[in-house]
Amino acid sequence: MQHVPTHIPVLLKEVVEYLGIRPGMKILDATAGLGGHIKGMLEAAGGQAEVLGLDRDREALEEAGRRLAAYGDRVRLVRTRYSRFPAALAEAGWEKVDAALVDAGMSSLQLDDPERGFGFLTDGPLDMRMGAEDGGESAEGLVNLASFARLREIIRNYGEDPQAGRIARAIVAAREKAAITTTGRLAEVVAAAYPAKWRAMARQHPATRTFQALRMAVNDELKELEAFLAAVPEYLATGGRVAVISFHSLEDRLVKRAFRLEATDCLCPREQVVCVCGHKARLAILTKKPVMAGEEEVAANPRARSAKLRVARRLPDAAEATDAER
């Protein structure tokens, strides 16, 4: 019997409210996953909206397709990286969208399947690729071939682990004896690298941050998010909104910085008396601080604890603003 993963979309109520979901909208869910947010948004629109859902994970899209089948051709699902959403919009014949969503977290399908190699609670092959059929370096390749310096940098920067040097050194020493090929073996190596006092005081498994860091590196997650944030204002209809849910401080800082940049007119240095950059604000920030899950949602879905939602609205272009003033 095939395992059907449970799936609770994070901050769904807040996403629906901040995006202003209503009938007639064109909606881009750039990280469709198992379709939880799409289903919630369509329900809020009374089934009278069109959604383009993207994901790199074929299994996730297949499951999403089954869950959203009742909506027929109102939902179009495309397997692609979300940084490539402009091409998907063009193929769908969409010039602009009224709402865009990115949920940068992992889907239940990926986390709960030991064969995917994202977690270590159950031993499995060390993979971590969201779109394994596309090829690319797996976590196994990274762990066994990357230099000490690169491993340390990945674990320090993406995992923000103060023991990055010790962990990288332990990985290099372990792989010299035998290749590290499973999640369980990697978790053992990382845990052993931690000082005993740190292990005793840790609120989570010592390998948690290392696994997160390797996953982010394998899937180039920060560059994906950067590319999306840079491109999305151009594809939002006037008044359209973009919402991003992040789970990592580095991701949240990227979103905050990108929104702030697009909400600012002149980007010239302060000492520049006359503006020469010509930059005009394209977004208005709707969330001064990130929106986070309440106690009730966290109790029902512990994964929501670290979720942060930021939202911005597309401003009129200069020509549109001038026409409106006439």
Rank of each mutant, 00 (worst) to 15 (best):
G294V: 12
T264L: 13
V102F: 04
E137N: 04
G105P: 02
R257A: 10
E251V: 11
T182L: 09
A132H: 06
A192N: 14
K256T: 07
L52S: 02
E224A: 09
M292T: 15
A87R: 13
R81D: 13
A44L: 04
R215S: 09
L34D: 02
L61G: 00
M128H: 03
M130C: 09
G135P: 07
R305A: 09
G117N: 08
A207T: 10
E115T: 14
R66L: 11
E59L: 07
P125A: 09
C266A: 12
V291R: 11
R175H: 08
H205R: 10
L11I: 06
V102I: 14
H279A: 09
R313S: 12
L267H: 15
V16G: 03
V75S: 00
D252Q: 03
R74K: 14
D323G: 12
A45P: 00
E137F: 05
T238S: 13
D112S: 04
L254R: 11
R257C: 02
K177W: 10
P114R: 02
P162W: 08
E262P: 01
A193T: 04
A49I: 00
G165M: 14
E234L: 04
V244L: 09
R199K: 13
G239L: 11
A170D: 06
A200T: 11
G117M: 05
R84Q: 12
G135R: 08
L225R: 09
A149E: 14
M106V: 15
D55T: 05
R257K: 10
P125M: 01
V10S: 00
A70S: 13
A146V: 06
D112M: 01
K26G: 07
V244I: 15
A196Y: 01
R282H: 12
